[in-house]
């Protein structure tokens, strides 16, 4: 047991701490003050209201429950979480990330506070980024609080913690991509429920187009143009998640996720502007 805890502390707690520290340093010294102000307000608002807690607790119950009872973490006897845990995680995020992010801009529009925020001397991208980062903190804390499963696996055997860590990184990136989709959708509606449902639909879509049957059927429809199939699956979050979560940290996938998020946040800015004119 002691060994397991040591492993987990070294392999997981340390990297998480480093990520937190880097994030805080960037926020404090690099980000414009307006981003920081918006971020602080949003984080406080998340953790003052029940949303964050409900989302985190539900996510933990469901994700751990499923992998213990259905995924068979214990029975498999393999010290590998891909089959039993990581392959399910993105499915939860399809629902959880929109639930966390649905209020980002729709609430702001419904209450009229968007008018307040966007008439302050702050560029729209700063407000978008600040709010997005605050919601990211909620998703990040979900993954951090998933540590018991890591402890269990380390207690049961001696897994490759590096592979597991990349599984978490991949899951976080998928969650953040889904969150950016939600941010984009919430810019177009003042109703949180509409934002939630449409975001879930879109997340499901960008996830499913990467499934093997989809690319197979695309190949059948356009046999002479195999690039269509590979283009579509290359656009899917799933494809990149699979590569990353198997422990292959490929910069191509990282670039994909970051540009995906960047694109959606840019779309949020466009959406907010379109809404006003």
């Amino acid at each position: 047991m002691g060994n397991a805890i040591n492993n987990v502390l070294l392999d997981f707690a340390l990297p998480s701490l480093v990520v937190c520290l880097v994030f805080l340093v960037l926020l404090k010294f690099v980000a414009p003050p307006a981003v920081r102000t918006v971020f602080k307000r949003e984080v406080r608002s998340y953790f003052m209201s029940p949303i964050a807690y409900v989302c985190v607790v539900t996510f933990l119950l469901v994700s751990n429950g499923i992998s213990f009872w259905f995924g068979g973490v214990v029975e498999r006897g393999e010290a590998d979480l891909y089959m039993s845990y990581f392959q399910y995680l993105p499915w939860f995020f399809i629902v959880v990330a929109p639930a966390v992010g649905m209020r980002l801009w729709s609430e702001e529009q419904r209450l009229g506070t968007m008018e307040l925020m966007l008439t302050m001397p702050i560029a729209p991208w700063q407000a978008i980024l600040g709010k997005y980062l605050a919601a990211s903190v909620v998703l990040f804390s979900m993954l951090v609080l998933s540590f018991p499963i890591v402890l269990t696996v380390n207690y049961l055997g001696s897994p490759d913690n590096g592979v597991m860590l990349s599984g978490f990184v991949a899951s976080l990136l998928v969650a953040l991509s889904f969150l950016s989709i939600t941010s984009l959708v919430s810019a177009f509606t003042r109703s949180q429920i509409v934002a939630l449902l449409i975001s879930i639909g879109l997340c499901l879509f960008v996830w499913l187009v990467g499934l093997q049957p989809v690319s197979d059927s695309l190949l059948k429809v356009f046999p002479s143009m195999p690039w269509i199939s590979s283009f579509v699956s290359g656009l899917s979050v799933l494809t990149h998640f699979n590569e990353l979560s198997k422990g292959i940290l490929v910069s191509r996938d990282l670039v994909f996720f970051l540009s995906f998020i960047g694109f959606c946040l840019f779309g949020t800015a466009v959406g907010l502007r379109l809404n006003r004119s």
Binding site: M48, T113, L116
Partner: peptide, 13 residues
Amino acid sequence: GYLPENAPLYNDM
């Protein structure tokens, strides 16, 4: 300084 119509505010603060 701008006071929008209906005085929108963040209710959770």
